Amino acid sequence: MKNAIHPCLWFNGNAFEAAEFYCSVFSNSRISVNTPMVVNFELNGQKFMGLNGSVEFAFNEAVSFVVECDTQEEIDYFWSKLTAGGSESMCGWLKDKYGVSWQIVPSILGQLMTDTSRSQRVMQAFMQMKKFDIATLLKA
């Protein structure tokens, strides 16, 4: 595709290790190029580049990747895999072991938040959560 856009992630010399990890978490994923400087990989068909940089730059929450999940089982799976060696935050946010920020969210969240009769209750419910709980959101 002409002028395709994809993220380049600056790793601390471990881009290939990170790419292997992400490919193990997401289905339909592969590493297409591995050189000493860069690793190109795809996660669910989305292209990424991993750069073997140094400690000069670090990831922060200004950029995060959103994973929409249809079921609680999917939320539990991605939460478990991506928090291993990383850290949990609030409202579906986490950092993986490489410091990359992720949002693991139920795909139904947008619909719940646009329902004016319940959006405030839904927001109050998820503001108390680390990992999203779909059943709790549906009860709100």
Results as ranks from 00 to 15, higher is better:
13 G>F: 04
61 E>S: 15
15 A>I: 06
98 Y>N: 02
76 D>W: 09
88 E>Y: 10
14 N>L: 06
22 Y>W: 07
43 L>F: 09
27 S>R: 12
97 K>A: 02
108 I>V: 13
28 N>T: 12
14 N>K: 11
129 M>E: 12
17 E>H: 06
133 D>E: 15
16 F>H: 15
74 E>A: 10
40 N>M: 11
37 M>Q: 15
18 A>E: 02
50 G>Q: 02
41 F>C: 05
71 T>G: 06
91 C>P: 04
100 V>E: 00
46 Q>M: 15
60 N>F: 04
15 A>G: 10
98 Y>C: 00
36 P>L: 06
96 D>H: 07
33 V>W: 09
25 V>L: 04
65 F>N: 09
109 L>D: 03
77 Y>H: 06
116 T>M: 13
80 S>L: 12
73 E>R: 13
55 V>S: 14
90 M>D: 11
71 T>W: 01
122 V>W: 04
100 V>S: 06
11 F>C: 00
12 N>I: 09
23 C>Q: 06
70 D>Y: 12
101 S>V: 11
63 V>I: 15
126 F>T: 07
49 M>W: 11
123 M>F: 11
32 S>Q: 12
101 S>I: 05
39 V>A: 11
80 S>Q: 14
85 G>K: 05
102 W>P: 07
80 S>N: 13
47 K>Y: 13
27 S>G: 12
81 K>S: 11
102 W>N: 06
126 F>G: 02
14 N>D: 15
122 V>T: 01
87 S>F: 09
18 A>H: 02
126 F>E: 00
99 G>M: 01
69 C>E: 03
109 L>C: 05
106 P>Q: 01
19 A>N: 00
100 V>F: 13
96 D>M: 04
14 N>S: 05
50 G>D: 00
49 M>S: 14
67 V>D: 02
126 F>R: 09
43 L>C: 12
13 G>L: 09
32 S>V: 15
38 V>P: 00
21 F>C: 05
66 V>L: 14
117 S>H: 07
112 L>R: 01
